[in-house]
Design a protein around this nucleic acid. Structure first.
Lengths: 331, 331
DNA sequence: TTCCCTTTGCAAAACGTTTTGTATCTGGTG
DNA sequence: CACCAGATACAAAACGTTTTGCAAAGGGAA
C-alpha cells in the first residue's frame, strides 16, 4: 500500500486517520485515499489493535442460546449497536456448563476483547464469573449483588401494570392471573404489578383468581382450566407469558369459551411466532430484548471510552402490543 | 511473563507451543508452564495472529436474525464447532440491506477473519457478495450457482418423504398437503417428497388434496378449513411447516375434529416452542439447524487447514420427531 | 542574504508473538 | 586431551500498524 502510493507507511497512516491528517498535505491525503480505495485497502485491525492495545471487539457470553427465541433479538440489538460504534461482537455460549464458560471467557480474553456483555436468556440473578475480573462487564437481562456492575433488565412490575391497566380500561373487574411457579424475578415482579394495578383502581383481589403453574403451555392450560371452570370465573386472564397464554387459549376452547367475547387474555413477551399465530392474535406486553442488547453494548462502550463512569442498573419499559384477545367483559 | 519465569520470550514461546517444545528442557518447560498458570498468562492472539497471518476468527454473516427462532440453533452449532477447533465466531447481520452487508463484511475483513460462513435463516438461493472474493466461504442454509463454493442445506425432499412415510405407515390412504405459496426450494422439494412417497406406496394423488397458502398460521388455517370441510376430506394432513400445522389445528378445532382421532397432522421444522405447545404435541420432521451450523464451520476449517480440498454441496437428513398428532385413520 | 518558523514527509520504536539462526554448554568418542 | 554432536537457550527479524521525534523544504521578515 505504502509503495503503491509512493509514500511512506507513516504518511499512509496519517492520511487515513482523521485525527492526524493535519500532518499531511491535503493533496497527498487525497492521493493516498484514492489509492487505498482502488486497492480495496483497509487497515489490519490485528496490527492496529496490537499497537493501540484495543481490539475493537466485544465479547457476548450467554447461556442457552438454542432453545429460546429471545436470543436473536438480543444478539442483534447488541450487534447493531456495536456496528454503529465501530465495534464487532464475538458470540460465545456455554449452556449451563460453567467449566466451559470459563474456558470460553478465556478465549475471549486471548483475543483481547475490550469488554464483555454477560447475558442471560431470561431475567435472572447471576454470579459474575471471576474470569471476567478486570474486564469491563455489563449484565444483560440479569442482575447481581455487586452494584459496581451495570445491568439492564425489563421493568417487570411496569410490564404487568401495563397489561393489567389495559384489561381494567377495557372494563373488566374480575381479573385472574396465571403466574409462574418458579422463584425468579419475573414471577415476583409481575405479581406485584398485577396487585398494584388492581389496588390503584380499587378492585378487590380474590386470591383464588391468582394461581401458579409451570411456565409453559401445558401449565397454562391446566391453570386456566381451573380458573375458567369456576362459576364466578374471571372475565379476563393475565398470563405470565405468551406460552402460558397459549395454554389459556386451549383451555378456553376446550370449555367452549370464545376469545375475547367470553374471556379476554393478555400475555407477556410478544413472542411473535406465538402471539401472531394464535387466533385471535394475542394482546401482550413486549419484552424489550433488542433494546436491552443495544443498551448493554452502548453502556459498555461508554465505559470503555470513558473509564470510571459510575455503574447504573437500568430497567427498560415494556410496551403493550394490541392484537385481538382483549375486549370488553361479557355483559 | 518472560522475566517472571527468568527466561527469554523465545523460550516461553517454545515451552508453551507443543510443536516446538523439543527445543527446551523438560524441566524448563514445566517451570514456564507453572509460572504461566500462576500468572494466568495466556498468549495474545492479536500478536500471534499478526505474526502467523491467521486470526483464528471466523465470520458469520446472516440475514434477519431477529424474527426467526432458527437463528439460535444455527449460531450455536457454528459456535460450538468453532470452539472445539480453537476458533471463535464473529456474528454480523444486516437484514436485507446489501449496502450494510458489504460494510459489515468489510469489517470482518479488517479483523482478518480466516473465513466466512454466509448464512440464511431459511433455505434459499443466494448470490455471494463480491466482497467475499478471496476469503474461504461456506454457505449455510443456502445455495448458489457457483459449484466451487461449499454449502449445506436440509434434505427437503427426504424430509417430506419421512413425514409422509410415517403417515402412510400409520394406515392413512387419503393424505392432504398444505404447501407454501412462495417459490422457494423448500416448496418444491417438499412437494416432490410428498408425491414420491405416495407413488412409492401406490397411493393415488388427488390434486384437490394438495393446496397452497401463505406459510403462516393464518394461511394454514384457511387452507385446512377448505381441505377438512370437504365430504371426502383427507384423514391426515402434511403441512409445509409447524406454523402452518398450527393453523391446521385451529381449523380442526373449529370444525369439531379431534387430533389425531379424526384427523392426523404432521409438520416440518420441529419448532419446539410451537410443536411442544400444541395440544396434543405436534409430530413433525426436524430441520437440522444446529447440525448445519456445525457442518458449515467444520467445512470451512477443513478448507482453511487444507486449502484446495474440493467444494461439496451437502444435504443433511431430517429426522422424524414423534409427539401425539399422528394416529391411525378413523375407521 | 540570513535566519527562523511552518509545513510536510520520513525513520524508528513499540505492541506481543513465532521462527530462524546462532551461541553456549555438556558429554561422549577418538 | 582434543574434537564433535547434540541439547538447550537466546538474539534478532518479521508481522502491520501508530506515534514520536527529526529532517528537509518552503516562505516570510529582517
Amino acid at each position: 500500500m505504502a509503495k503503491a502510493a509512493g509514500v511512506s507507511v507513516t504518511t499512509v497512516s496519517h492520511a487515513l486517520n482523521e485525527a492526524t491528517s493535519f500532518r499531511v498535505k491535503a493533496a497527498t491525503q487525497q492521493h493516498v485515499r484514492d489509492v487505498a480505495r482502488d486497492l480495496g485497502y483497509a487497515p489490519n485491525k490485528m496490527a492496529s489493535g496490537l499497537r493501540n492495545q484495543r481490539s475493537q471487539i466485544l465479547g457476548l457470553v450467554s447461556d442457552e442460546i438454542t432453545t429460546t427465541p429471545y436470543a436473536g433479538a438480543m444478539i442483534r440489538g447488541a450487534q447493531d449497536a456495536a456496528y454503529d460504534r465501530g465495534y464487532v461482537v464475538m458470540v460465545v455460549n456455554s449452556g449451563l456448563d460453567s467449566e466451559l464458560e470459563n474456558r470460553e471467557i478465556n478465549m475471549l480474553r486471548q483475543h483481547q476483547v475490550d469488554g464483555v456483555v454477560y447475558a442471560r436468556m431470561y431475567h435472572q440473578s447471576v454470579q459474575v464469573p471471576a474470569e471476567l475480573e478486570g474486564l469491563p462487564t455489563v449484565l444483560l437481562d440479569s442482575v447481581t449483588d455487586d452494584k459496581s456492575i451495570s445491568s439492564v433488565i425489563p421493568d417487570e412490575v411496569g410490564a404487568a401494570e401495563t397489561a393489567v391497566e389495559a384489561i381494567i380500561q377495557a372494563g373488566h373487574t374480575r381479573i385472574g392471573m396465571i403466574n409462574n411457579i418458579d422463584d425468579i424475578p419475573a414471577t415476583h415482579g409481575r405479581r406485584e404489578g398485577f396487585l398494584n394495578a388492581l389496588r390503584r383502581h380499587g378492585l378487590k383481589h380474590d386470591p383464588r383468581h391468582l394461581v401458579i403453574g409451570q411456565p409453559e403451555t401445558a401449565g397454562g392450560r391446566e391453570a386456566a382450566l381451573g380458573l375458567l371452570g369456576q362459576p364466578d370465573r374471571p372475565t379476563a386472564l393475565f398470563c405470565f407469558s405468551d406460552r402460558v397464554a397459549m395454554g389459556a387459549y386451549q383451555a378456553a376452547t376446550a370449555l367452549g369459551l370464545r376469545i375475547p367475547e367470553d374471556v379476554s387474555i393478555v400475555g407477556i413477551d410478544n413472542l411473535e411466532i406465538i402471539a401472531d399465530a394464535l387466533w385471535p392474535g394475542l394482546t401482550t406486553v413486549a419484552l424489550p430484548h433488542y433494546e436491552m442488547g443495544s443498551w448493554a453494548v452502548h453502556r459498555i462502550l461508554d465505559d470503555i471510552e470513558n473509564p470510571g463512569v459510575p455503574a447504573v442498573q437500568t430497567q427498560l419499559d415494556c410496551p403493550l402490543i394490541e392484537r385481538g384477545s382483549l375486549g370488553p367483559p361479557p355483559s
